[in-house]
Amino acid sequence: MSVNSTTVNTVLGPVPAEELGVVSVHEALLSVLPGAEHAFDITLDRAEIFETLAGKLRDFRAHGGGTIVDSTGMFHGRDVPLYEALSRTTGVHIVASTGQGPEELLGGYFLTPQTNPPTPWPAEKFADLFSREITEGMVVPRVERRGPAGLVTTAVTRAGMTATDESLLRGAARAALATGTAVTFRYGDDAAGELDIALDEKLPADRVAVGGLDRKDAADAGAPEKIAARGARVVLDHVGTEDDEHLTDTDRAALVADLVRAGHTDRILLSVGATGVAKGHPANDLPYSHVLTAFVPLLTAHGVGDGDVRRILEANPRDLLAVR
């Protein structure tokens, strides 16, 4: 695959794609369950949040990390001015995202339309909302717009795609197509079927990244292989998480090795899915550096060569994030 000499939208402005270094594409910086900011028993101490996040970003950088993508979208605690200060202070590139979802995480504004009969917010309106965050800048609600978002993100309900989820996914795909940005989504219960929705919007497959593919149910369904075979990006975004729902790191490494052997190296993306600071929901406290410190040695042990590892950690996310 050729590497276009293009730029990536970070919170401090466009950065040449080749400067990103090792990228983790599905992480969270400040992650706030919508509504938690109003809770009587939750405090948001910006100085403390900054210190915690700065420490985690420095650790990532110390272990060879270059860029963190906050892929939580526009309505889950995104704090663009804070991320700008963090990036300036730590030297880690930060890419923030637009988008939101799944349906359950939306505000009532998007769910109780004043139409008769009530219909979900149409894809076109979501596309407009998300596109403006790229062409005009990300919103600091009711205050101002800042720099452009670097990624469009959404998610599908785990129990299955709702009508609003489909609007979100189509809207995200249209925003991506219109702005040259990539789209990423956490799949619900049918990774391939949901990918088809995004592709139905004429978005090239390699502009779509599908997250959650290191869930056991995804692996059991052969979803990583199917997604890669369609030319989309496979995101194993819970590296380090070993629970009832997810593969162990050993199985994850075996999955990566299988995909590499099948010729899908340039489709693979890795991420920890860490939450730097979580408010209102349980944190994933793993360090952003876990892929570099713990998982890369496992890949090596599974026979994945250094060149392929570099490709997965640097070239693949660079191709995804570079604005076309």
């Binding site: 526009m74 309505f75 939306l106 009532g108 504004y109 998007f110 919103v139």
Partner: peptide
């Protein structure tokens, strides 16, 4: 008054 989430849509900003 604004439905939650409307703050993301600049058309309602004042």
């Amino acid at each position: 008054y604004g439905m939650p989430g409307s703050e993301l849509d600049t058309r309602w900003w004042k």
